[in-house]
Simulated assay, not measured.
Amino acid sequence: MKRFERFQAIQQLDPIRDTCTICRQLAGYEFPWDITRALEVALFRTFCVPSIATLLDRTAEFHHRSQKRYDDTGLMVSLILQWGYDTPKGQAVIQRMNQIHGHFPISNYDFVYVLSTFIYEPVRWIERFGWRPLSESEKQALFHFWVNVGKQMEIQDIPNTYAELEQYNLEYEREHFQYSEANQRVGKSTLKLFLSWFPLPLRPLIQPFVYAIMDDRILQAFGFPSPQPWQRRLLEHMLRSRGNLLRYFPPRQTPNFYSDEPQRSYPQGYDLTDLGPPHMLPKLNQSKP
């Protein structure tokens, strides 16, 4: 298969009817690394909202079990992309998410915003750093995929079009992104988690580049310091260079989902019932995914 053959095949699919197939191709074959990084940025963005950060701060999940909380979120998102929202396995994951969220007083407005980040952060990341841009059909497929997931989560009043939900996303951030101590505590715990993946001597060198991937609104909402301009330029150059080089690599022949990778929190493997705060939730009769 040549580099653009899969892209050409995707363009023959319908973004509504074939949304699960398209999103599986994007997440598993075309942009697995980029979508994972984009969803990490999305995670940070949601913590810039005091109502969301206060809830997470109060549960202390990101303070005491940050790796598990990260892995659980990554696994559930990845499993839905891998299996689709319209299969028994995908629906079991959504059921598990609904169980977890049902324990917390989360507003519908916050739900809609968080859902929107799963669409627009990957789109924005790939537009900046991907080895090729997304087509309009692919963007629509991402929109319809996550809107359908949102409906199965019983999220109400989701805007009806890609443009309307994007506008909601932007307006929500303008209105709700603001500094709070809860934001900062959750942001610092998440930053500490990310840095823990690197050798200890390298962490002080890497930390400014984590700041560099954040825009000014994120930094202000966390009370984080601004990186040096050269650090942002260097990071963007490296990410764009990676995308440009990938154009010359052969296409991926086997899918690479986050859910297929070894998990730090589950070195012996996991059941779907392991995901989420274990002391809160009833067990499901679910085999390993």
Rank of each mutant, 00 (worst) to 15 (best):
G90E: 04
P159E: 04
H237P: 01
P133E: 12
I16H: 09
T73F: 05
R6H: 07
H279Q: 14
Y113L: 05
A38N: 02
L43K: 11
E166Q: 15
T36S: 07
R203K: 04
R69E: 07
A141H: 05
G150C: 06
P50H: 00
G187M: 08
D157A: 14
P50M: 01
D274L: 02
Y109P: 00
F209H: 11
E171W: 00
G187C: 07
L234V: 10
P267G: 03
V112T: 13
R96S: 00
R6I: 07
Q268T: 15
P229W: 11
F257I: 12
F4W: 14
N256M: 14
Y109M: 13
R65N: 15
P250V: 04
Q82D: 10
R174C: 11
Q25E: 15
P133Q: 13
R185K: 13
L246F: 08
Y113T: 02
D86A: 10
I126E: 05
Y266H: 08
Q286H: 12
N169T: 03
I158A: 08
A182Q: 12
I80Y: 02
D215P: 02
F177E: 09
M280W: 13
E173H: 12
P204K: 03
R3P: 05
K89A: 12
L75H: 05
L239N: 02
N183Q: 06
V77Y: 03
L55C: 06
Y113Q: 06
R232A: 11
A38T: 06
D215C: 07
E164P: 01
E175S: 14
D215S: 12
L56N: 07
E261G: 02
Q8G: 13
R37H: 10
Y248H: 14
S241V: 08
F194I: 13
K89R: 15
Y179S: 08
V210D: 00
Y168H: 13
Q167L: 05
E236H: 12
P159Q: 05
F143G: 06
L193A: 08
E30R: 08
Y266I: 09
F209V: 08
N160Y: 10
Y258M: 03
S78I: 05
P15F: 04
Q99W: 01
T19A: 10
L56A: 04
S78L: 09
A27T: 13
E236F: 11
I155N: 04
Q152Y: 10
E61K: 02
S135K: 09
M76H: 00
L26R: 02
Y85W: 14
K151P: 02
P267Q: 06
D110M: 01
Q253A: 10
A9S: 12
Q99T: 00
P122F: 03
Q12A: 13
E171T: 12
R124A: 15
T19Y: 03
R69G: 09
P227L: 08
Q207F: 05
N148F: 02
I10F: 02
Q263Y: 06
M153W: 06
I100K: 00
P88D: 10
S78E: 10
L43M: 12
G130Q: 09
S78C: 04
D57T: 04
R6A: 08
V149G: 08
S196P: 11
P201N: 03
T19G: 01
L81I: 09
S51F: 01
G243Q: 09
A182D: 12
Y113R: 04
G276W: 00
F257M: 07
P88M: 07
P282V: 04
F31H: 00
V41Q: 09
Q207I: 03
P289T: 08
P267S: 02
R185V: 12
L281E: 03
